[in-house]
């Protein structure tokens, strides 16, 4: 297999457009939340494994294509209203940046750390989106709204998870993005500019989802909110993620 073929194959898992569409097609066809969780965790790790196992040299066109993929999906996220689909697009946009991390002098184990810490908020979002489907029949922004009043604990967790996913301090994705900008700004200034644009689009898309779900009047129908144990679980995971972010900052910056 030639190097290009390996890269194209890896491009299915570390998304490169148009192979990136495969992940979103698979995600679209999976209904069980636990299977989605497995898919989210395994997919980028497979990509990193292929790249590191094959020892393939990453050519410049891959970096350009990875940035294009990330921008494309970040831009497309702006008009998405289905939370699962939005999550898939965010994953595509995030994971394609691992190509950029792979060409810098980031140690291999740290790359896996990047992939996992980027994915944890997405996994939480899979679970929350399943929770929305269970309660409302669909995880769709602008359809019901008012979650902050109807199920305040659930929406508190939802907002924090989205904030963590779109690279906000002190969560790991923020420091990964910061590190990527630091690594690229002198050698590839255009790549650094592209990274900042992607970051901005994530923030925009994230606030659109938050507003579409939590803002509005409370529902008249009584809907079950999270109990203390579930809140405790999410709080511990998110706190752990923030601690991991601070630790990561000390290691990479």
């Amino acid at each position: 297999m030639t190097e290009s073929m390996i890269i194209l194959f890896a491009g299915v898992f570390l998304p490169l457009f148009p192979m990136s569409m495969i992940f979103n097609a698979v995600l679209d066809n999976i209904k069980q939340p636990w299977l989605k969780v497995v898919l989210f965790i395994a997919w980028p790790l497979c990509g990193l494994f292929i790249v590191s196992f094959s020892g393939v040299a990453i050519p410049d066109w891959v970096i350009a294509l990875a940035l294009f993929t990330s921008i494309l999906y970040a831009l497309r996220m702006l008009s998405l209203r289905e939370v699962n689909q939005w999550n898939g697009f965010l994953a595509t946009s995030l994971w394609s940046l691992l190509w950029l991390a792979a060409i810098t002098d980031t140690p291999e184990m740290l790359l896996y750390g990047y992939a996992l810490s980027m994915t944890v908020p997405l996994v939480l979002l899979v679970m929350l989106s399943a929770g929305l489907e269970k309660r409302f029949g669909a995880a769709y922004t602008g359809l019901y709204g008012g979650l902050a009043r109807t199920i305040p604990r659930f929406s508190g967790v939802l907002v924090t998870v989205i904030v963590a996913a779109i690279a906000t301090p002190l969560f790991p994705t923020f420091f990964i993005m910061f590190d990527l900008v630091v690594e690229t700004v002198s050698i590839m200034p255009m790549a650094a500019m592209a990274l900042l644009l992607i970051w901005l689009l994530w923030s925009w898309a994230g606030t659109r989802v938050i507003q579409g779900l939590i803002v509005g009047r409370a529902s008249n129908v009584k809907i079950a909110d999270f109990g203390i144990p579930i809140i405790g679980f999410y709080s511990i995971v998110l706190l752990g993620l923030a601690v991991a972010g601070i630790y990561m900052a000390r290691v990479i910056l």
Binding site: W199, L200, V215, R217
Partner: peptide
Amino acid sequence: TRSQTAYRFAFWTLITYRIGDLPLIL
């Protein structure tokens, strides 16, 4: 959280601030 208008303009603030964050990061 009931006010769509409050969030609409809060978003304007956030996006302008984010535009301002980027040059500082750079």
